[in-house]
Write a protein that binds this DNA or RNA. Structure first.
Lengths: 143, 143
DNA sequence: ATTGAAATTGATAAATCGTCTCAAGAAGAT
DNA sequence: ATCTTCTTGAGACGATTTATCAATTTCAAT
């Protein structure tokens, strides 16, 4: 029994709804994707080269964008690259970004998340994911 | 009396501190930048082409990055492009976004902002701005 | 199982965005 | 005014992502 049945069903539902097909590549990429918290297309390309040396980079980009449309992934432009975040991953972390040197620090904060839930509930929303980025200057760039 | 004296002084202070020079191009770009809430390098390039047709795109990129280092601007990767935000514009609000119907609800939450400050301080950062987006389903789309 | 229409793939070309290079020019201290 | 250093403009370049297209695969209907 594969591990990520729920997500696979969600993908199949999306595919069915849009007359898209369930292919070996999409299954392969989904399996790899769901084991990550976030990943770039390039990283996945190298990672999957072992399992399928002929899997093209374009296919990975296309498939990760498909996951975004299906609600499984969330694209985040980070520096020069695009990170594809695994939405089902709960240990969500946020980012502190230095606008001087582009340094990125990851952090988690349960209190903030709790307050986010409150805001959402107050407005009748059910949150599936979020994005929080704090921009500023790190200690080195500030002086 | 020119409008943006404070920012110009801040830029000159940064230039002096780093052995950089105050040039005609930097002054021109600063004036244009301070009239915007946020702008891309490309937009500014076209906008300034009237005033100085020979101003190069590379100079604009270099100068906007300089503004980031000086704390006047903040780079934000949005879609495929980089937005340079005018830090002196402070009217900040966050967003609740329904992934079902694309409805967007704006909100403000001081408690969250306070916690953000704490996180930043703990990591040696000084926040100039932030972005918080909560994604989920609104009450109508949830059933 | 076979067929056939439609979607997908892989390889690569092309587009996009931003940075680097470098000779020529400008700034600012002496 | 001179001299050193920084900056500029123009285009080359590099990195990332998307578009193109012939060949292949999927999947529903035989």
């Amino acid at each position: 029994m594969p591990k990520h049945v729920k997500e696979m069903e969600a993908l199949k539902a999306h595919l069915g709804k849009h007359q898209l097909k369930y292919t070996r590549q999409r299954e392969l990429i989904l399996e790899a994707f769901l084991q990550q918290e976030h990943i770039t297309a390039e990283e996945m390309y190298h990672q999957l080269a072992k399992k399928d040396p002929h899997l093209g980079l374009a296919t990975i980009y296309r498939t990760l964008n498909l996951f975004c449309e299906a609600g499984l992934a969330q694209a985040r432009h980070f520096g020069t690259q695009t990170q594809y975040d695994n939405v089902s991953h709960k240990g969500h972390h946020d980012h502190l970004i230095c606008t001087g040197c582009q340094k990125i620090v990851e952090f988690e904060n349960c209190e903030i998340e709790k307050l986010q839930e409150e805001v959402a509930t107050r407005n009748g929303f059910t949150i599936t994911t979020h994005r929080l980025e704090l921009y500023g200057l790190c200690s080195r760039c500030r002086h």
